[in-house]
Design a protein around this nucleic acid. Structure first.
Lengths: 192, 192
DNA sequence: CGGGCCTTTGACTGGTTTCAACTTCTGTGG
DNA sequence: CCACAGAAGTTGAAACCAGTCAAAGGCCCG
């Protein structure tokens, strides 16, 4: 249990067996069915979720009803409405399962206690957030400088697994395009 | 000296007098003239810069020569090519001064020693990066969901100081618009 | 005072969105 | 196991909106 979680943790910050056991007491497993919500806009995000198995998405809904996907998560990734989690404000994002999924949850109180008790947890968090920040920065640059085709090509190269597992219209939404535009961009790429 | 730096640090993580003195030994002041580079694409980013006074910008240059501004920084903000700083790879961004500026620099070795010696520094960093991450997330959402007018209105509301101190064409670049489009968006807003 | 950069405005172009129809795929219930 | 309904993806046509190119006016700095 929690194998992948600790594998990823150890890649960033190596843990002793005792430390692993200690962390385990703070973790909660959770299974989610396809289409089931982990978090709904308006609720407070009460935990950080690590994906042991499955696939989820995080998205907001604009006034006109358009879904805007801001993040995907598959095995080994972490997902949460961090702002809501940290501040206790209502979430502005929704998170739901795109496939049946198995998660590892870390509640707010667990998070706070681990920060107090285990410096390695803070290091882990820092590295995690730093990585997410750098990835976002690249993404923003690509949105501002690349054409839809280039963006899609770039995305498939960076995240081939995601292209396999999420439907096209979600990937379009993630890239800020309409499904039609993405479909046409794909055709152009193929014809080369 | 370094007043603003420690004010901001203490807001996030309170320090004792001794700790402040200790940190001071790792800091280096630097003055920059308007238009002077702090970092040029291709060089390795050797420090994190805190702005005591002045205004800077961080940007990349696309093949076609277009400048794409990814960040501004004024008093109290921190600026750096974090990826280059952490990995030692050549920087993909340029940083230069838009006004004469006074900076506080933290070198890579200082950064690493502080991480080892002072847990509060790691906490400070974590909070700093987390804040930057959340801000970027909001920015990405606004790029994908708002019209140019809404985006500019949003920006002026969020960062009125920046609108005062940076020329329009830089703000346009920051928002991923051409100067012409921003000019027209401003006119539309005024006419309401 | 002059030059150059910044901003604004206009006309035109091109690419993405929108709307709509059609096809394909998927999952569900009879 | 097949049939069918709904979702997903593709394609076409038209509208729209930001980008591009060009020019003029304003302002700052040397």
């Amino acid at each position: 249990m929690y194998e992948l979680f600790f594998r990823k943790f150890n890649e960033k910050v190596p843990l002793t067996h005792e430390e692993e056991e200690m962390i385990k007491t703070y973790l909660t497993p959770k299974k989610l069915r396809r289409k089931q919500y982990l978090l709904q806009e308006g609720d407070v995000c009460k935990s950080i979720a690590f994906v042991e198995k499955g696939a989820l998405r995080e998205y907001s809904i604009a006034e006109n009803g358009n879904e805007q996907i801001i993040q995907f998560a598959i095995e080994g990734w972490t997902i949460s409405d961090l702002y809501s989690f940290l501040t206790g404000e209502p979430a502005t994002y929704n998170i739901d399962a795109v496939e049946d999924s198995e998660l590892v949850l870390l509640s707010k109180s667990a998070h706070e206690e681990l920060l107090r008790k285990l410096p390695k947890y803070e290091t882990y968090l820092r590295l995690q957030v730093t990585g997410a920040y750098l990835a976002l920065q690249k993404r923003l640059t690509s949105v501002n400088t690349l054409s839809p085709e280039e963006r899609y090509a770039n995305f498939t190269q960076l995240y081939p697994e995601l292209v396999q597992r999420f439907p096209q219209h979600m990937i379009a939404s993630h890239m800020g395009l309409t499904p039609e535009t993405l479909s046409r961009a794909r055709r152009k790429i193929k014809s080369k």
